[in-house]
Amino acid sequence: MSHRVLVPLELPDADSVPAALAKSITSMEVVLLGHYGLPEQTPPSAARDQFGDDARAELTTLAESFEDAEASVTTRVVFGKARDKTINRVAVEEECDVILTSGDADEITQVLVPIRGERNFDRILSFSEELLTATEATVTLFHMGEDSDQIPGEEILSDATDQLIQAGIDSDRITQRLSEDDDTTQTIIDLAESFDALILGETEPSLRDQILGNVPAQVTIDTDNPAFVVRDAEEA
């Protein structure tokens, strides 16, 4: 499966994507989205006329880290007020199956992959395999310990490990971790401190997620790590 990664950046004065992070996805197609946030009273058309040239020039400069790594990059600037809705809309329009929240990354040597259940399972592992191949990083497959989709957590981790090995990832690079802590989100955030990047699956929210907030969204807000959110196959 070929992956297409959306990288949203907030204009103006966006932080550049670290070279190690850009290099990790050079085998994939990259869409660099410059979202230019606007006050409620500012029409997007007026902002485009006033700031459009500067925004496009800034995004072109930000794309250089990907071009230097010989990645295939498409750039797109959007002026608007609803950032999250814009990201989701552009991901659909550009047919991106992964969304990258950039973060601090001098190198990508250890990757954390929380796995919830069968939903989106193959797509998460397909992306993980491609990232691991590009970086030669080690990976920790993590499950919270509760049964998902009536499948024990141990079996989910075992199946994930087998799939990565079949894809060519050396078993010595794969670690499994099973936890029974009650707070899924906080556990992942705490674990993330020991890793360089996370791969999170976008899944249909449970009732708990709907009340307390979606896990991938909370994790990307509360950690400085780069996070790749693999979109749900039924939504992408």
Rank of each mutant, 00 (worst) to 15 (best):
61 T>E: 13
64 E>M: 13
29 E>G: 07
222 D>M: 15
142 F>T: 11
234 E>G: 06
15 D>F: 04
224 D>I: 15
52 G>D: 05
171 S>P: 09
104 D>E: 12
183 D>L: 05
66 F>R: 05
215 V>C: 06
146 E>K: 10
169 I>K: 10
26 T>G: 09
159 D>F: 10
117 G>H: 08
221 I>M: 12
54 D>G: 00
218 Q>M: 14
94 E>F: 01
129 E>P: 02
214 N>I: 15
89 R>M: 10
4 R>H: 06
114 P>H: 12
206 S>V: 11
145 G>K: 07
197 A>E: 02
125 L>H: 04
114 P>A: 12
106 D>Q: 10
137 A>Q: 06
31 V>T: 15
65 S>P: 03
144 M>I: 13
5 V>I: 15
53 D>W: 01
224 D>K: 14
138 T>S: 15
60 T>M: 07
234 E>S: 11
213 G>L: 08
158 S>D: 03
69 A>G: 08
196 D>Q: 10
78 V>C: 03
219 V>Q: 06
19 A>C: 02
80 G>H: 00
35 H>C: 14
177 R>V: 02
198 L>P: 04
49 D>H: 10
145 G>H: 09
220 T>K: 08
38 L>I: 15
26 T>R: 12
1 M>P: 04
115 I>T: 10
210 Q>E: 12
28 M>L: 11
87 I>E: 05
103 G>I: 14
222 D>P: 08
170 D>N: 13
54 D>W: 01
218 Q>F: 09
150 Q>W: 08
210 Q>V: 14
53 D>P: 00
164 L>A: 06
53 D>A: 10
210 Q>K: 14
24 S>E: 05
233 A>N: 07
156 I>C: 02
97 D>E: 03
206 S>I: 11
95 E>W: 00
102 S>F: 09
188 I>V: 12
6 L>P: 02
100 L>R: 04
119 R>D: 15
133 T>S: 13
46 A>N: 09
80 G>C: 01
231 R>Y: 08
161 T>C: 01
208 R>H: 11
81 K>V: 12
187 T>Q: 07
175 T>E: 14
193 E>S: 13
60 T>C: 01
211 I>W: 06
140 T>P: 00
155 E>C: 00
224 D>W: 09
192 A>K: 04
57 A>L: 13
200 L>T: 14
189 I>G: 02
122 D>G: 05
21 L>I: 08
53 D>E: 13
12 P>H: 03
180 E>A: 10
86 T>K: 01
